[in-house]
Design a protein around this nucleic acid. Structure first.
Lengths: 239, 239
DNA sequence: CGGCAGTTTGATGTTACTCAATTTAAGTGG
DNA sequence: CCACTTAAATTGAGTAACATCAAACTGCCG
């Protein structure tokens, strides 16, 4: 999981730099995946569906550029966003072990996606304990996040949910890039926020206005500007 | 994960039978863990706390008998139950990889718990691909359940949440024992249900009464009696 | 018999949803 | 550059779902 100077095989769209990917480890990056034929690339337009529940695939997907999200669709038309995907994210760690998606995924912005053959990854995992280590750490982290989200959706108010989501996204963005002036670029519609925290877009709009009026933060024009980090943290942190 | 006729090392409290444990695989069960000194046992009384968030432990815990649950405690006194633990359940699959609990756990009934040294399990995992296979399958299953729960808490009504919980518990009980006459023993108070689905005990009581009056199911005296399985399924399934 | 924990019920309050109208922003083609 | 179109965000009014508070009821156990 260390950044390396070598070009990243999983995410060639970011040549020469660290793409942030879980799979960006020397033993996977050394040599050319593409040359060996166990990697392919896809692109998708904004709001295009890029994976569908129950669909089988021999590949594990990594987001290279842009934002996406994975979600579950309900019969009544509503959907629950499970996770926003940022560059370097595996669609899910579990996808390394299962050949069928248990969720759907959709692009938010234009995206580029890398598809790695699962069998090849597993062979390399068997050879190299470092990769196992990385993957198991990723499993642990994913289960922590799932448990936190459960807690937030089960126990907390609208304001707290949205504050939590913002803090969560802020942390993840900070891990990828330098943030100046407490301004975080989020390419999301209010509908996305609503689907992620289990509220209606109308109510999300009201809460955002409240945050704005109280000088806590201002989410508009695809930028989250945090004005009072302490207060946002007080509302949204899980203690 | 196949039942074996040999006594189960992880759960000696159920001698001679399959304890249901994830770790009940020949390669772990052969020989005596206790003799080799990498296993210990604990007991706890009803509603006794058996694990605490941020506590470190060199052991991985498996529930042998009784019911328990793992949960997150909030500063405001409320708690979210993440999972009900039944005999054979690992407290969490992630605990194989992390030496610190990220949740707390409490007994529901009187329980017996088996503690296996993490280091020993990991050594055996490295040797035996079957165990990896079992564990990775367990990771996948746990992430499915977490995603489903997220969906239920984020998007569904009180009735739907409780129906979902019942269906979920029914499936898990059926995997362990034969069920007669659609009667499922659940050693839970309404408070447990409330904490699991993010409602107040008062509202849980009202919904249960509704289910009773509509002839869907009757949960009382620690038994869930399902009268109209189709209807319960219609309300609580995720499609 | 008294006490306790859990459940039930009623009355009332709050939060968030629904529906519908209006405003703003972002394109698009002339 | 400006009308026209469309998607997104905002606002208000009314409503439904669930929470809160408090009292009564039940079964159980000493």
């Amino acid at each position: 999981m260390k950044p390396t100077a070598s070009p990243c095989v999983t995410c060639p769209h970011r040549e020469g730099g660290f793409c942030g990917s879980l799979l960006h480890v020397p033993s996977l990056s050394s040599g050319s995946a593409a040359q060996r034929g166990w990697q392919r690339f896809f692109a998708a337009k904004p709001s295009e569906q890029i994976a569908t529940r129950n669909q089988t695939s021999a590949d594990v997907f990594v987001l290279c550029t842009g934002w996406a999200f994975r979600f579950l669709q309900l019969p009544n038309g509503r959907r629950q966003i499970l996770k926003f995907l940022m560059p370097g994210d595996l669609f899910s760690t579990a996808s390394i072990f299962e050949d069928q998606f248990h969720y759907s995924a959709k692009a938010v912005t234009a995206v580029q996606i890398s598809a790695l053959e699962r069998s090849e990854i597993r062979v390399r995992c068997a050879e190299n304990p470092d990769i196992w280590d990385t993957i198991s750490r990723s499993c642990v982290e994913e289960s922590h996040m799932a448990d936190e989200l459960t807690c937030v959706l089960g126990q907390r108010s609208a304001e707290e949910r949205i504050a939590y989501l913002f803090l969560h996204l802020m942390r993840r963005i900070e891990a990828r890039s330098v943030v100046r002036d407490w301004r975080y670029p989020l390419p999301l519609r209010q509908q996305h926020i609503a689907d992620a925290v289990g509220l209606t877009p109308v109510h999300v709009s009201r809460v955002l206005r409240l945050f704005r009026d109280r000088g806590i933060c201002d989410f508009s024009e695809n930028v989250l500007a945090v004005r009072n980090p302490a207060e946002l943290n007080r509302i949204g942190s899980l203690g």
